[in-house]
């Protein structure tokens, strides 16, 4: 377990610089999100590795939004990997979190995890511990790009039609912060129908991922039907990058192409 992370958080807590550290705790063989307020609890700190590297990651930024809505004047530290740090930057821009109230505790991902994720940047700039890994070239989007158009339609129909509309992809998403969701808008999406109207249902969500999806992959992990959602959203990121020159979560002063909120 990372001594550096423990010591840094302990110091922040003892010196009263933060109200709490939002991270993961291991209890009775299970890993779960937890707000550490007492330095003694850090004994049970987990970094989200259970059976494999990064297989017990949770949407901590989503919980952080809830904490900061309840306690807007408090400062929190939060455990971030490369993707989570990209998420923080976008959430600052979307005004869901206040930059001056968040202290990122950065963790780099091992090669095994970076490969599985096909991660473009498997470490945060605020790197406290863990490796500063290399960019991994993606294969998943390229494989679909290489199909002819009819094969692509067959591929996605087969994938999307397994959808049981659990909304897990949206629920676990650390970047889905809307109070009202198009996916539950009865005038646009039929309720009580499974599979939902495809590809509309999944493309609606894909479009909403513009300037939001930071490629953490929690959606795909949460999908009971094993739909390759990450491939779809990686494609969205590719389009946004190629067409609009915007890379989600990589800068603090640029706004995403669909964002109308001014960035300071």
């Amino acid at each position: 377990m990372s001594k550096k992370i423990k010591e840094t958080v302990r110091t922040l807590l003892v010196e009263g610089k933060i109200r709490g550290f939002l991270g993961l705790i291991e209890r009775d063989g299970h890993v779960m999100p937890h707000l550490f307020g007492d330095p003694q609890e850090l004994e049970h700190l987990s970094l989200g590795d259970h059976g494999r590297a990064g297989d017990a990651r949770y949407p901590l930024n989503q919980i952080l939004i809830q904490l900061m809505r309840a306690y807007p004047e408090e400062t929190f530290a939060v455990l971030v990997r490369g993707c989570d740090e990209r998420g923080l930057r976008e959430l600052f821009k979307w005004q869901q979190l206040r930059e001056e109230k968040v202290i990122p505790i950065g963790l780099g991902c091992p090669e095994e995890l970076a490969r599985a994720c096909e991660c473009e940047k498997p470490f945060p700039d605020n790197l406290l511990d863990g490796p500063k890994g290399e960019k991994v070239e993606g294969q998943k989007v390229a494989r679909v790009n290489a199909m002819d158009i009819d094969a692509r339609l067959r591929f996605w129909k087969a994938e999307f039609d397994r959808c049981i509309k659990c909304l897990g992809c949206r629920n676990i998403c650390p970047m889905c912060f809307c109070k009202e969701c198009t996916l539950e808008e009865a005038n646009l999406i039929d309720s009580g129908e499974i599979p939902p109207a495809n590809p509309t249902f999944h493309l609606v969500r894909a479009i909403h991922m513009v300037g939001r999806c930071i490629d953490c992959g929690l959606c795909e992990e949460a999908c009971p039907a094993d739909i390759p959602l990450r491939t779809l959203y990686k494609k969205v990121a590719e389009i946004v990058s190629e067409e609009f020159g915007y890379k989600t979560g990589y800068t603090v002063d640029e706004k995403s192409p669909f964002n109308i909120i001014e960035v300071k």
Partner: peptide, 22 residues
């Protein structure tokens, strides 16, 4: 009580839930 998350370490559902569980 403010929310539900699937347990990633549960051997039963391995980080997934249906719409009711969520």
């Amino acid at each position: 009580l403010i929310g539900t998350l699937p347990s990633k370490t549960s051997p039963v559902n391995q980080g997934r839930l249906c719409v009711k569980g969520w």
